[in-house]
Computed example of a mutant assay.
Amino acid sequence: MDANAWTQFGCGVVALTARQPDDARFWADLEAAAQSSAYSLGLIFYSQDSFPADLLRSKMAECAVGLPYAACSTADEIGGVDEGAGRCLAILFPKDQFAITPFRIDGIRSIGFDRIVAQVKRERQAFEHDPAPFAGTEDKGDTFALCLIDGLSVVEEMVTAALHWALEDIPLLGGSAGDSMHFSKTSLILNGAAGDDCAIVLLCRSRIPFKIFKTDNFIPTDRKLVVTRSDPARRIIYEFNAAEAASEYALAVGLDPSSLSPLSFASHPLVVRVGGEYYCRSVQKVNPDGSLSFFCAIDDGIVLTVAEPTGMSRSTREAFESVDAEIGGIDFVLGFDCALRRIDAQNRQATQRINAIYDAYNVLGFNTYGEQYLSMHLNHTFTGIAFAKPPAEPETPS
């Protein structure tokens, strides 16, 4: 492999990036990785604008025969050699450190909670009964689960709750697939089979110590909006406080209703209080009738609080520093960062500071339409899994 085209971390994980589909070096590197048979899975995050799903499937079938892979479209990609939007990012997990079993849950809009639980339990039981996941060692590693979910399915809360229930003590995190903020159609691919109304779950064993964590940066204000008319199934709010939703939201945040945009929603998130903690319920878009579509579940009677983001770079840095100290040094982080956090960072001219933090801790991942963390579907949050640096090799006496 060309050393300029890829990054390898201490645990053997490799990151490859391509800016255009005709990047011959990228596909040659993937072909070499597949032929080596050294990797248990490739995890691919891609921009549909530059890498349509059918093209990606075709290129993987041509260049990476024998390499299992899971892929999803994004609102943007994070990390790798070549920075910027509109890329394809491939993360390769070595077999000697990671044992990964992927499966797909189809028809998530209609399948229902119980059927998801039953499928995941079957997969988990088979995964847990593997007597020797790592050849030549009795070490079974520690387990976690990743999920990639159609970010336009409007059922992420139900899917996340079902996964959490079925996985029992296996910690879960993940991200909702995006489509570069077009809000039209996402795509997910598992070993060449593509779809949108689905979720991909990865059951993972890692011989590398890890820590799952999350961070956000919003402070609730005293401004309240009561949902008085909504369509929960479609995540649409028609009225706040018995008035048109868009106008009432604009009044609460001090903006002209005609000026509302993704930047407005990123700068003035709404939060709901659950069990003493606040969780974001971010607005996706304004509809022509003055209603608001949301990224997370809503319902009549919910009281939403206007929040103000504050200190994103500080809170992000503190979260990473804490995890780094806890695990004895971060090798790399697999991360899922809300697209609205990215927009808010741009608005506050904090993008360079955030990117510097992500670069310092080797964050690989994507900007999402929602984040999953244990049993919760979240917005305006970074969720991640940090893997520890390998122990330093003892020095050889001279």
Results as ranks from 00 to 15, higher is better:
E168F: 01
V154C: 03
L167K: 07
V201F: 03
P171A: 14
D142P: 00
D196Y: 14
L203C: 00
L188C: 06
A161L: 04
I170T: 10
L190P: 06
C204L: 02
L148F: 12
V155S: 00
L163M: 03
V201H: 04
H182V: 08
K185S: 09
P171I: 07
C198K: 04
C198V: 00
L172Y: 08
P131L: 07
K185Q: 14
I189V: 10
R207H: 03
V154I: 08
F183M: 13
C204P: 00
A166L: 05
A193F: 11
G195E: 06
C147Q: 10
L146N: 02
A145T: 03
T186K: 02
F134Y: 03
V154Q: 05
S184F: 15
A166N: 05
G195W: 06
V159Y: 01
V159I: 05
W165A: 14
I149S: 10
A135W: 12
P209Q: 09
T186S: 05
R207M: 04
L202Y: 01
A135N: 14
A166T: 02
L203A: 00
G136Y: 12
P209E: 14
D196W: 15
P171F: 07
L167C: 09
S187R: 06
L188S: 03
G192K: 15
C198W: 00
L202G: 00
L148W: 07
E138Y: 15
P133M: 15
S176I: 11
D139Q: 14
S180E: 15
A193K: 14
I208Q: 05
D196T: 15
V154E: 03
L152E: 04
K185A: 12
P171E: 07
D179A: 13
L188M: 10
L172A: 08
L152H: 02
T137R: 12
P171K: 13
K185L: 14
T186P: 01
N191R: 12
P131E: 08
C204V: 11
S184M: 11
G175I: 14
L152S: 03
T137H: 04
D179K: 15
A162T: 06
A166M: 08
D150V: 04
L146M: 12
I200S: 00
G195F: 13
V201T: 01
W165M: 13
L172D: 05
P171T: 04
A135M: 15
S180A: 14
L173A: 06
D197L: 08
D142F: 02
H164F: 11
